[in-house]
Computed example of a mutant assay.
Amino acid sequence: MLDLKHNIPVDVAAALTQRAFDLLPQTTTALARFGDAVPAFISGYFRTWEPYRPHWNYEDGVVWKGALDLYQVTKDPVFLDYILGEMQTRVLPDGSMPTFHPQEYNIDNVNGGKILFPLYAITGEGRFRTAMDVQFAQLKDHPRTQSGNYWHKQIYPHQVWLDGLFMAQPFQTEYARITQDEALFADTVAQFRFVDHTLQRDNGLYAHGWDESRTERWADKQTGLSQNVWGRAMGWWIGALVDVYEASEGFSPSLRADIADITRRTLEALLKFRSDNGLWYQVVDQGQRDGNYEEASASLMVAYGLMKAARLSIVSETMGRTGVESLKAVCARFVTPSALNGVCGVAGLGNVPYRDGSYAYYLSEKITPNDPKGVGALMWALSEGMRTKDSL
């Protein structure tokens, strides 16, 4: 049975205030350049946000990454103070992580660990370095397919989803760098290569998931692939690629070139399916089909990928400016002072009730204003927008 219990305020202006959260004037000015409502929404969101779940989870990790991304570009202490407050009970002075449950072998649970690296660099606190080892211990024993790719979850045996590349591989690459273990980075690249070879469709986009066993009802009996290209899955994929490339600086140029090549081809394919409004659809390659809609989190993640890939010189500055245009389009269309609208709350494959990966399934999932996957992606994209040349 799916466990989707959470508390998401639909209107942050009406939600109970949990903390003071006052942006510096220069932060407000910088954010407002992407949309008049953006500063009020960001500050209101953090004033009212409660952790998505009490245990270490990927949804909170998406928001934590967004806050740290904004801190690193604005140096506004309000973002860092928020994260450090969250870490008081999640990473203890001895580096233990009482709310992290590695025995679940859920690849999503690795995502939150990405913030440990910038926190250690910023604060120098040893607890964050120790916690990296605690987090990585899950990956030492995490089950894999015969290809060497991590299972998505122990409850989803033999399955690889695009989502999982984002959850685990940037963390693994950062851990490889801090431990100087290039073989670990080579493992990351091998996992990307397999997904690129196996899940890629003729149009250059990727199926949401693959079942090595071919036993799931959603999986094609010959290929093991799911039926459709889900927007946020493509967002997770491109986010994973650019984050891994950035984190792998100093490692083998040929291995990094493989990541750059997959990134470039993915973005070129995605641009072919960008809507006239500068956005991407819930089912990416079926934009004109009845019921399909432009989805905010996917659009933000792809915009983030375009801007970051341009900053890292993987793609042209022109493509980076396209990312800025898409970010601004999302802000104009979906951001109000009290909500980020247009976000698909969740989508997956299998489980109970069964998710069959059909077009109708992806269109059936509830649109959830202020879902953390969308808000986190908004913050990643805003931080890259501020870094992009001539974006403002």
Rank of each mutant, 00 (worst) to 15 (best):
V284M: 10
V284W: 08
V284R: 00
V284I: 15
D285H: 04
D285Q: 11
D285E: 13
D285P: 01
Q286T: 05
G287A: 04
G287R: 10
Q288A: 14
Q288R: 13
R289W: 06
D290T: 12
D290H: 10
G291P: 09
G291I: 11
N292M: 07
N292I: 08
N292W: 05
N292T: 09
N292L: 04
E294F: 09
E295S: 04
A296H: 08
S297A: 15
A298Y: 06
A298S: 15
S299V: 05
S299M: 03
L300A: 09
L300K: 06
L300Q: 08
L300G: 02
M301A: 12
V302K: 00
A303D: 09
A303K: 04
G305C: 01
L306C: 14
M307Y: 07
M307A: 07
A310M: 11
A310Q: 02
A310G: 11
L312T: 03
V315M: 04
S316W: 09
E317L: 09
E317N: 13
E317W: 04
T318I: 13
T318D: 15
G320M: 03
G320K: 08
G320S: 07
T322V: 14
G323C: 04
G323M: 05
G323Q: 01
E325V: 13
E325M: 13
S326D: 10
S326K: 03
L327N: 06
L327A: 03
L327R: 02
K328P: 06
K328C: 11
A329K: 05
V330D: 05
C331T: 10
C331L: 04
R333S: 13
T336R: 05
T336D: 12
T336M: 12
P337T: 02
S338R: 14
S338L: 00
A339M: 07
L340R: 02
L340A: 03
N341F: 03
N341W: 02
N341D: 15
N341C: 05
G342M: 11
V343C: 01
C344G: 07
G345Q: 10
G345T: 05
G345S: 12
V346Q: 12
G348A: 14
L349T: 08
G350N: 01
G350P: 01
G350E: 00
N351F: 13
N351P: 01
V352N: 14
P353K: 09
P353L: 08
Y354C: 11
R355E: 15
R355F: 05
D356I: 05
S358M: 08
S358D: 10
S358R: 08
S358I: 11
S358A: 09
Y359R: 02
Y359S: 07
Y359P: 04
Y359N: 04
A360N: 13
A360M: 06
A360F: 04
Y361K: 03
Y361N: 04
Y361C: 01
L363G: 01
L363W: 11
S364V: 07
E365Q: 15
